[in-house]
Design a protein around this nucleic acid. Structure first.
Lengths: 341, 341
DNA sequence: CTGAAAGCGCTTACAG
DNA sequence: CTGAAAGCGCTTACAG
C-alpha cells in the first residue's frame, strides 16, 4: 500500500507538503497542491489512520459498550449513536457485553488500549475497578441508559416514572389488583429504578407489592420465562406481569403460551421498552417507550462536547406509555397516549 | 497515560526488555521480568495498540460491513462474528450500510484506512469500484450472506433453494395457487436468488409467477408494506405473499392489518429469515431459517485463514423451512420440519 | 539475557 | 511556500 513517501516522491515534493495538502493546510502553492493530488489519485493513496492517530493522539473513534446487541432497544441505540457520531466526524466501535461483567471489562480494556477518544457505556453492573479507574483517570466518558451512582460522569437516560405511573393507572382502571414485576439485575440502575417506580406507583393505589411478586430476572428472555413460570405456580398468581425489558416480556409470552394460557384473558402483560414487533405480537403488547434515538444522539453530543473541551450536560428525557391490548380491553381514546404505529 | 518508557525507567531496564516481557519473549531473566511486571502493575500501564499496530502492520481487527443492523438477522450474524473473532484473538468493527451503497462505501473506506486485517462484507449492491479494487488489491476479504459474482473472494452463505421448494410444497398442499413474492433488490444476490428459487419451485407445480406478483422491495419494512398494498389492490390478489426477508414480512403484516384483513384467512404470509419474534406474532409466521450463527462463525474462520496464510474455503449451508400458522391450518407432523422453539 | 538503534507512517514546530 | 528533522509508542534484528 502506497505511503506518504511514495506520494511525495511521485509528486516531487517533501512528505511535509503532502501532509499539508491532505490536511487542507492553507500555505501550499497551487502548483504543489495539484501535483500532490494527481499523485494521490494515480497511486490510489489513502492516509494510514493508525499512523495519524499515533502522531496526533486522536483516533476520532468513540467506544460504545452496551449490555446486549440482540436486544432491539440497544440495537436501535447503537444505530443512532453511530449516526450522530458519523455526522460529527467520529467512528464508533461497539462492544457487546452480553450482560456479563467480565465481557464488559474485556471490551472496555480493548477500547482503552485502542485509545478511543471517548467511551459511551451502558453498564451491566455496578462498575468494575477498571471502569471506575478509567473514569477517575479522566477518560472522556458518558453513561447512556444505565449509569453508576457516585461516579462523576454525565448520564443520558430516560425517566420512566411518569410512564410507569400511567401504566399502573391503566392497569388499575382495568380492574387488575395483583400486579407483579420481572425485575432486571439490582446492580443496574434500570434494574432497580423500574422496580422502585412500580412500587411507588402501586403505593399510590394502596396496592401491595409482596416479594413473591417481584421476580429476579437478568434482562434476558430465558429469565422472563423462568420468573413467569414461578408467578404462574403461585397459589394466587398475579393478574398482570410487568417485564422490565422487552426480552423478558418475550420470555413471559413463551411461558404463558407453554401453559396453554392466554394474554390478556388469563394474565395480562406489559413491558418496559417498546419495539416494532410489539405491534404484531399476539396480542399487541402495551409498553413503555423510550425516546431511544434521541438518547443515542444526546449521548454522543455530550461525549463529543467532553472530548472537544466543552462542558457536557447530563440529559434526562421522559418515557411514555403506549397502550395496546395485552392488559385487557382495547384502548379507547383517553388522556393516556395510544400507539400510532 | 504511562508509556513503555515510563515502565522501563521505573523497572530500571530498557524498553526492549519491557517489550519482551509484555510479548512473552522467552529470553528475559526472571529478575527482569519480575521488575517489569511490578512496574506495569504500579503504573497501571497498558500497551498502546495504535503504536503496536503501526509497528507490526497488524491491527488484529476485522471489519464487518452489513446491510442493516436493525434487521435481527444481521444483528445475530454480527454477534456470532464478534464471538468467533474474539475466540480467535480479533476484535471486530461493524459498519452499518443501511442498504445504502454510498454508506457502504463510507464504511469500507473507513475500515481500510484503519488498516483492519480483513474485511467481512454482505454487499448492499453489485460492488462499488472501491470494494472491487480492494478485493483485487489483495485485501483479505470474505463475503457473507450476500456476495458479488465474478469477484475472487470466498463466500459463506446459506442455500435456500431446498427450503423454498419445501415452502412451495407446503403452500400448494394447503391449496394456495396464486403465490406472490416481495423481492429484495436485484443488485443483491439474496435479492435475485430468492426470486429465482421461488420461480423454479412454482414451475415444478405448474404455477405461474406473473410480473404483477413480483413486488420490488428493498429489504426494509416500508417496502414490504407498499408492495403488499399493491398486491391487495390487484383485481385478483394473491393467496400468499412470500417476503424475501423478515423486515418486509413485518411491513406486509402492517399492510394486511391496516386493511382490516386477517392472516392467513384473507391472505397467507411466509418469510425468508426466521427470528424469535415470529413465534409470537399474530399469527406465528412460517419462515425459512438460516443457520445464522454458523454462517457468522464460518465466515470468520475463512477470513482468519486467509489473513494467517492458510487457504480459505467457501461454505454453503442449507436453510430449512419452519412451518407455523401464517399460511393456513396448523402444522401436522410431516416430513417437513416443524418449529421446536 | 540485554540494550542501542532503526523504523513503522504520519504531523508539525522551526528555519529559511 | 517549503523541507529537514523530531517524535508519537511500540517491536525487532543486531551486536555484545
Amino acid at each position: 500500500m502506497a505511503s506518504i513517501k511514495d506520494v511525495a516522491a511521485s509528486a516531487g515534493v517533501s512528505v511535509a507538503t503532502v501532509s499539508r495538502v491532505l490536511n487542507g493546510h492553507p500555505s501550499v502553492s497551487a502548483d504543489a497542491r495539484e501535483r500532490v493530488l494527481a499523485a494521490v489519485a494515480a497511486l490510489g493513496y489513502r492516509p494510514n489512520a493508525v499512523a495519524r492517530s499515533l502522531r496526533t493522539d486522536q483516533t476520532h473513534t468513540l467506544g460504545l459498550v452496551i449490555s446486549d446487541v440482540l436486544n432491539p432497544y440497544f440495537t436501535e441505540l447503537a444505530r443512532s449513536v453511530e449516526e450522530e457520531a458519523r455526522a460529527l466526524g467520529y467512528s464508533v466501535i461497539i462492544g457487546n457485553a452480553d450482560e456479563r461483567p467480565e465481557l464488559q471489562d474485556h471490551h472496555v480494556r480493548n477500547l482503552l488500549d485502542r485509545r478511543i477518544d471517548g467511551l459511551l457505556v451502558s453498564p451491566t453492573d455496578g462498575g468494575s475497578p477498571l471502569m471506575l479507574d478509567a473514569a477517575r483517570a479522566g477518560t472522556p466518558m458518558v453513561f447512556v441508559d444505565r449509569w453508576i451512582p457516585g461516579v462523576d460522569v454525565p448520564v443520558v437516560r430516560a425517566d420512566g416514572r411518569a410512564a410507569v405511573r400511567d401504566l399502573v393507572a391503566h392497569l388499575y382502571g382495568l380492574g387488575h389488583r395483583r400486579l407483579a414485576i420481572i425485575a432486571g439485575p439490582a446492580a443496574t440502575t434500570t434494574g432497580s429504578e423500574r422496580v422502585e417506580a412500580f412500587r411507588a406507583a402501586l403505593a399510590e393505589y394502596g396496592l401491595p407489592l409482596p416479594d413473591a411478586r417481584i421476580g429476579q430476572g437478568d434482562f434476558q428472555a430465558e429469565s422472563g420465562r423462568r420468573v413467569t413460570e414461578g408467578f404462574l405456580d403461585l397459589p394466587e398468581p398475579p393478574d398482570v406481569v410487568f417485564a422490565a425489558d422487552n426480552l423478558m416480556a418475550l420470555g413471559a409470552l413463551d411461558a404463558v403460551r407453554a401453559r396453554g394460557l392466554r394474554v390478556p384473558d388469563d394474565i395480562a402483560l406489559a413491558a418496559f421498552d417498546d419495539i416494532p414487533w410489539f405491534v404484531h405480537t399476539d396480542p399487541p403488547v402495551t409498553a413503555i417507550a423510550q425516546p431511544t434515538g434521541e438518547l443515542g444522539r444526546a449521548a454522543v453530543r455530550a461525549l463529543v462536547d467532553r472530548i472537544e473541551g466543552r462542558t457536557p450536560r447530563s440529559v434526562t428525557l421522559p418515557a411514555r406509555l403506549v397502550v395496546r391490548r395485552s392488559c385487557g380491553e382495547p384502548p379507547t381514546p383517553s388522556p393516556v397516549q395510544r400507539s400510532t404505529t
